[in-house]
Design a protein around this nucleic acid. Sequence first.
DNA 1: GTCCAGGGTCCCA
DNA 2: TGGGACCCTGGA
Length: 281
Amino acid sequence: MEYRHSGGQTEIVAGAEFDIGHTFECGQCFRWNRVGDNEYVGVAMGRAARVRGGGGTVSVTCADADFEDVWRRYFDLDFDYGTARRALCVDAYMDSAASFGAGIRILRQDKWEALCSFIISQCNNIPRIKTIVETMCRCFGDRIEFEGRELYGFPPPERLASLSEGDLSPLRCGYRAPYIISAARAVAGGAADLEALSRASSAEALRSLKALPGVGDKVANCVALFGFHMLDVFPVDTWMKRVIKERYGGKLDPAIFGGYAGLAQQYMFFHARSLEHNQRP
DNA sequence: GTCCAGGGTCCCA
DNA sequence: TGGGACCCTGGA
């Protein structure tokens, strides 16, 4: 992908393959907030950025070194989403879902943040997940000054590992609190080595993730996809169950998507959820 | 005011 | 393998 750097801002010539609205609103991340028309401010990997889209380009405003150090990899800019997207058009439904979601990119998120965020996501709606994660960062994360705003990084596992369940009560995260604490302790203590797992096979990564309390099949698949960038996994949630029932007669083998089942899942999820929201009065 | 579902997981029969 | 409980919130 082509870039132009000039004074604290990088312009990415993305064409149709980077739509920031689709990428930030397809449910894979919880820390990007819309601040204007096709414009978001967010925090990832302990850094903040302002991202603006439109006219086939994406502008990233950030600290000088951060684009190459963080954002280029985070936005997965060296992967050809156009080719992958076309390969996923295996039937009429995927044709429409993939063209509807064109511009979605699977972000390379922090592994611990993905694990913790998707533990929080269980049986929860997306606005509330965002609120809980935001409160967690505000209470326990490091402060980041950005364009006069006060933002917060995601708290490292070591910090949460030293807390008790009661310390998490301001988060109002309910029965998920003990899951968060024990995941933090497992990661901080080395019992769960996320770096090593991210280099394992997806089957092995899923198996190990599911050994953590509060991590079942769905959360493990989300962590593998969004935290480990394993594009062959296929998280099935309530929305996906609905799609599989309505479009595929209740049975779908993710193998039909080759190695890109996870990307297919994002197109399906985004399509189903957007349709539902647009039907509301 | 009540009911219900929301990007689930765990436990027990 | 299926059903209920779990914490909390916002919308109907």
